[in-house]
């Protein structure tokens, strides 16, 4: 068992694109769920729109990478409006059902062979990085050090991902200190009370849904940028994993979603390496594929335990339990 390799692999996920992608999506979810109390159970749908929006714009329409990102954002805005208009006036659990159903509809539409020439159906899409890599300012070579050594393409993805994440966190930081954020938190507590004070609750909820959706789509872009888009990634489990990361860090905190994503991915990678290794040398009496399944069982158990015993997350204030009643 190579502990050095295992620890290095785990540490590399502190700033891996997947971690940044989860962090972006979790920041989006913190706006929607943590601050506004909106039960978006379909963040995977927003991420899928981001990933496919980017990839299809690049492959089918040949757009440059920054316009692909704009298309991804535009798609998520339109989608948020479509979901929000019918449901944001209704009770919270309807939004949950509609967002989760909407995410599935999107996934099935991307998966079907009917639109194979655009979506690649079950195979997903690859080979859309051209424009992005062409614009890479890093010359060919190796960057970083230790576990965080990457080639010029990985470095470029990581830099863009971190920039987007920094922008997202800054926006949330500014908004949540503003009167806008105050209204949003008020809506989470009791939307009727806020309505009685003359605030257009629907508009605020819609803005939160759209903003969170944009961050989710950006997460999808970063998730897809390093290699490929695979429809199997955007299942409901992805939504649940992002929720786990969010709740781990603290749903109504600025840096909680980021910290939660880092912890989630580092632990996932660590377990994903350690458990099969333990099985390999006979310490765990299971096969190696069973050993790698174990970590997902642990995610589920962890999610339950967090919600039951520390619903405010790592960074949350104990008094400030952040759950919608």
């Amino acid at each position: 068992m190579d502990w050095g390799q295992i620890l290095s692999n785990s540490a590399s996920f502190i700033i891996a694109p997947a971690t940044i992608a989860y962090a972006l999506a979790a920041v989006g979810l913190s706006v929607q769920f943590g601050y506004a109390g909106l039960l978006n159970m379909g963040i995977a749908g927003f991420m899928a729109l981001g990933a496919y929006g980017y990839a299809i714009s690049s492959i089918t329409f040949g757009l440059p990478w920054y316009l692909c990102i704009v298309v991804a954002i535009a798609a998520s805005v339109v989608y948020a409006l479509i979901l929000g208009i019918p449901t944001l006036r209704l009770r919270g659990d309807y939004l949950a059902i509609v967002t989760i159903a909407g995410a599935e509809v999107l996934r099935l539409l991307f998966l079907t062979s009917s639109f194979d020439q655009y979506t690649g159906s079950a195979d997903g899409l690859t080979g859309y990085q051209g424009s992005f890599r062409d614009s890479n300012p890093f010359p060919r070579g190796s960057y970083g050090f230790g576990p965080w050594t990457m080639n010029e393409n990985q470095a470029w993805v990581t830099v863009i991902g971190l920039v987007l994440l920094a922008i997202a966190v800054t926006i949330v930081f500014l908004l949540m200190r503003s009167p806008w954020g105050r209204v949003l938190k008020g809506i989470r507590e009791d939307e009727d009370a806020v309505r009685a004070l003359g605030k257009n609750v629907f508009a605020f909820k819609m803005q939160a849904l759209v903003l969170g959706g944009i961050f989710g789509a950006l997460g999808g872009v970063i998730y897809a940028l390093p290699s490929s888009v695979n429809p199997g990634s955007y299942v409901t489990s992805l939504t649940f994993f992002v929720y786990t990361a969010l709740l781990l860090g603290g749903a109504a905190t600025i840096f909680g979603p980021v910290l939660g994503s880092v912890v989630f991915w580092v632990l996932q990678t660590f377990l994903g390496n350690v458990l099969p290794a333990l099985a390999g040398i006979g310490i765990l009496p299971v096969s190696s594929s069973q050993a790698s399944t174990l970590r997902f069982i642990l995610v589920g158990v962890a999610l339950m335990l967090i919600v039951i015993f520390r619903p405010q997350g790592i960074l949350g204030n104990k008094k400030e339990l952040t759950f919608v009643k």
């Binding site: 039960l39 709740l247 589920g300 962890a302 339950m304 919600v307 009643k325």
Partner: peptide, 15 residues
């Protein structure tokens, strides 16, 4: 709360 319970059930479902 019901939302908390729902998320617990999601965790249980995954596990």
């Amino acid at each position: 709360g019901t939302v908390q319970l729902m998320i617990v059930s999601i965790g249980l479902s995954l596990a």
